[in-house]
């Protein structure tokens, strides 16, 4: 399963909500997944010609239970203004997923009822899944192994 069943659609930020709404109207009852991707290291990735690559991308997976179909909606979100309208009114199930994307990638969702951090502590600084956020390491000091006596 996968590529043959799922269609991928690129939309602009302005048409995002309208496109999702039209998919919902055409029988995609469930928002299966929503996540954000940071393409900081891939500015020249292959995209359809009419799509301007931006640093962030939000990927929404819609699922149609009646037609057994999936559609993947990809939206480019610029680095300077990482804001998207929230899908909460259309799919209440996107609530926790949008909070996760906000928490880990720093994408704001306008109209989300409770946009707070969900996995990281409230006072955490930064958004860990961004590519410019270094992987934390706990320094380990290797001591000389103790001798036999």
């Amino acid at each position: 399963m996968g590529s043959d069943l799922a269609e991928v659609v690129h939309v602009g930020r302005d048409d995002y909500l309208a496109t999702v709404a039209s998919y919902k109207a055409s029988g995609f009852e469930m928002c299966a997944d929503l996540c954000a991707v940071d393409y900081m290291t891939q500015p020249n990735r292959p995209l359809p010609v009419d799509v301007t690559p931006e640093r962030f991308e939000v990927v929404v997976n819609l699922l149609s239970l009646s037609q057994h179909r999936r559609v993947r909606i990809r939206v480019q979100v610029p680095e300077r203004d990482p804001v998207l309208p929230s899908l909460f009114e259309l799919y209440p199930g996107s609530e926790a997923m949008e909070r996760e994307a906000f928490d880990l990638m720093g994408i704001s969702f306008e109209g989300h009822p409770d946009l707070t951090r969900i996995l990281m502590p409230e006072d955490w600084e930064g958004h860990p899944l961004r590519k410019d956020y270094a992987v934390g390491r706990v320094p380990v000091q290797f001591k000389e192994a103790p001798g036999p006596r």
Partner: peptide
């Protein structure tokens, strides 16, 4: 990039994977 979903004992377990052509996933 791809999204694959299976039926885990708890529900739809999905994996969205993005590759940049290297040996580690981009996402």
């Amino acid at each position: 990039e791809t999204y694959v979903a299976i039926e885990s004992p708890r529900g739809e377990l999905g994996c969205y994977m993005v590759s940049d052509g290297s040996n580690k996933p981009l996402r």
